[in-house]
Design a protein around this nucleic acid. Structure first.
Length: 278
DNA sequence: GCCCAGGGAATCG
DNA sequence: CGATTCCATGGG
């Protein structure tokens, strides 16, 4: 049963799907040879195309858009206000103007948690490959691709079945985390309702989840915009731009700021030069 | 062969 | 407490 193509009038500075889906917060979207971007989220395949004035959602419906994609892309949030607030800081203003269409996605919490366990001491292209193989092995077919597997499936799978995926030592972390979720030892729904500090504490009980992975899961999977992941890139950025520490007044949306900064220092040639100065 | 990649656990002072 | 060290894997 095919849906229609939905044309959404959005300017690129409000939502840039290429930057948003390729700035290290999600790992399941790829740019195709025809220029469209395709991937899977919440078990639903999606193919997109962006022009100057609109984004085309192929083969979907207004119902699916309202129920799933609007929320996934945070199009129900006022990013104008957030960006205006963060732009009070000169460095953030620069990072935001470099890629103003980035938004923090609302991803599935289990998928985000497992994905960022896999991300540790790993690079983005290889993380994407690992997750793709995980989905092919344990997920369900959805058109041309596969859904992200659920906790029960990952918990029940044998460790030998993980080995060919190339996760390295992280495979036991993934299996054990899935088991804790499947058994109810970790209640992700309950963590969703917690305040940030309690949610952090809860996630840190999972083996393979340290501070950085917890912050990523909270920001990208639990939509805690105050979560603030610091990886090797962010360490460089903070040392160069904020030697006195990141401004406290941005704490409520520090994660959003982090994502603009992360993308900026990772991909901007200008930022790269500035980072070399110290 | 080396180093690095959106780090974390185990161990040691 | 902080600081090492080891952990699999692939690309540059």
């Amino acid at each position: 049963m095919r849906g229609a193509d939905l044309h959404l009038r959005v300017e690129a500075h409000e939502l840039d799907i290429a930057a948003t889906l390729d700035c290290g917060q999600c790992f399941r979207f790829y740019t195709q040879e025809d220029g469209t971007i395709a991937g899977v989220a919440f078990g639903r395949p999606l193919r997109l195309m962006q022009t100057e004035r609109e984004i085309v959602f192929y083969d979907t419906s207004t119902e699916e858009y309202e129920a799933v994609w609007k929320r996934f892309f945070a199009l129900d949030e006022d990013y104008g206000s957030i960006k205006q607030f963060l732009s009070e800081d000169a460095v953030l203003k620069q990072a935001i103007s470099y890629s103003p269409g980035i938004r923090v996605l609302r991803q599935d919490r289990f998928e985000a948690l497992i994905s960022f366990i896999i991300s540790q001491n790993n690079n983005i292209p290889r993380i994407k490959g690992c997750i793709e193989r995980l989905c092919r092995q344990f997920g369900n077919r959805r058109g041309d691709s596969y859904s992200f597997p659920d906790a029960c499936t990952l918990a029940a799978a044998r460790i030998e079945d993980y080995r060919e995926l190339g996760l390295g030592y992280r495979d036991t972390y993934v299996q054990e985390c899935a088991r804790m979720v499947a058994d109810g030892e970790i209640n992700l729904a309950a963590i969703s309702r917690m305040e940030l500090s309690d949610a952090r504490e809860a996630l840190l009980k999972i083996k393979g989840v340290g501070i950085k992975v917890a912050e990523c899961a909270l920001l990208f999977g639990f939509h805690q915009l105050g979560a603030f992941p610091v990886d090797t890139w962010m360490k460089k950025a903070l040392a160069n731009f904020y030697p006195e520490g990141f401004p406290e007044r941005f704490h409520s949306v520090a994660g959003v700021a982090q994502q603009y900064l992360f993308h900026y220092v990772r991909t901007s040639p200008v930022a790269e030069k500035r980072l070399r100065l110290t």
